[in-house]
Design a protein around this nucleic acid. Structure first.
Lengths: 236, 236
DNA sequence: AATCCCATTCTTGTATACAAAAAAGATTGA
DNA sequence: TCAATCTTTTTTGTATACAAGAATGGGATT
């Protein structure tokens, strides 16, 4: 058995597995998620698969078209920009609250996470940086001392994961990101709420813009061959 | 036939129905939502009921405890405060964007919605005001021209619906609310993004505080008889 | 009388069966 | 050869059946 750990609620682990498969690009945007195929793959019946797909659809990762099936959500560029806009504001809010409320131990965690980012950057490993970066932001979410806000931020970050990851491939982005992190840490450390909010907002908005550049370059290169299918090839 | 309209996807209409029942207090916080009971009530099998409950759990209205069942989420005061904190920021963001982006027709809609609130206030009908108020805020969501943000705001408003409604019972709250609306409309009309954001933020935060007052008075009155069960009696 | 343990019952979680809608394919006509 | 319609097949949505965990109640023991 591959997964003997989970006694109950198979749909939960299925959801996580599918979430991962979508994030890693195993199922690119637009892919049809066939219930029986998935059921065979995970060796369960259609029932828990359906439940997992429903969860993913409410979470926004999947779109269920009635009587048509479930598809990995194709997020068009306009909506993606909207999502980055919201993400920037949520992160800014986390930063503002964190600057006011962070505990010494949490600040130590944040600085440690920042250090980890530094190391990953020096190693030149974008994947390692991606994970360290997630930990860094998670530390800020926690330090906001607003559990609901943290949940919202995590959920949205999860939806944007694929695109944030792509964006790290952009030239010089990792080094830039690191510098922004430094400013964020400093602002939070000295309790400057508005500076923390501003730096975080910019940090995320820049990601959105850089991503936009990236997509634009891919799109213009692609226009010669394909019709305009938002992001299909970008995510694959 | 009670509901012949919906051809497909019974789970969707079930979710909406349950959402309504939770919002109106038919199922107060903490209530156990028994699958077979619901199945009998809606004259369907357990399958679509389960799917609806799963949707509600992801949306945050219901908590599913594995092998124990689904319960109407008991939102404790601390989390409720957190939620109002986030709601305030989302609405502020809607206002900021709306002030920059609103179209003449949308502004007319907003002013019309404000007028409707005025009328409901003069009639002294809190329920009518509640609905007019929702339309007012919806107009701002739309005017933000950020569909994703609007979705998030609606979703959170839906979760807070019960408590916002309660809060309108507080003395003088409706008249106060109306005055705040006027300031919001003015700020948006003259394109003052920061003023719109600030007024909306305050508008929501005050709701949270007033609600807090309300709960506090109920709670202190209750402490004499019951143990501290967050909000059970407040929602019933 | 109170407590602990076992059996029964109830409820959830999963599998399977069935119905209806949509997609695919074939056949017929122009 | 192409198009349109009818038929077949596939796939979703729902109902039902079954298994296992949790709750409940009764009986035995102290």
């Amino acid at each position: 058995m591959t997964k003997p750990r989970s006694k109950v609620r198979r749909a939960e682990s299925l959801r996580e597995a599918l979430e991962g498969d979508i994030a890693t690009g195993r199922y690119p945007a637009g892919t049809r998620l066939d219930e029986v195929t998935l059921a065979n793959r995970f060796e369960v019946s259609r029932t828990p698969i359906r439940e997992a797909l429903i969860e993913l659809s409410v979470a926004g990762l999947v779109e269920i078209r009635p009587r048509r099936g479930a598809f990995v959500r194709e997020i068009g560029i306009p909506r993606l920009i909207e999502m980055f806009e919201v993400m920037a504001e949520l992160e800014a809010m986390c930063g503002r609250l964190a600057a006011r409320r962070i505990a010494p131990r949490e600040l130590a965690n944040l600085q440690a996470a920042h250090e980890a980012c530094n190391l990953a950057c020096e190693d030149g490993d974008p994947d390692a940086y991606f994970h360290a970066n997630q930990t860094f932001h998670e530390a800020i979410y926690r330090a906001s001392h607003n559990g609901f806000l943290a949940d919202q931020a995590r959920s949205l970050q999860n939806q944007l994961k694929v695109y944030r990851r792509l964006q790290l491939r952009v030239r010089n982005r990792v080094a830039m990101s690191l510098g922004e992190h430094q400013q964020i840490v400093d602002a939070i450390a000295r309790g400057d709420a508005e500076a923390a909010a501003d730096h975080l907002r910019q940090h995320v908005l820049i990601q959105g813009e850089r991503f936009n550049d990236f997509v634009a370059s891919v799109a213009s290169h692609r226009e010669e061959t394909e019709a305009e299918q938002p992001l299909r090839s970008a995510a694959g």
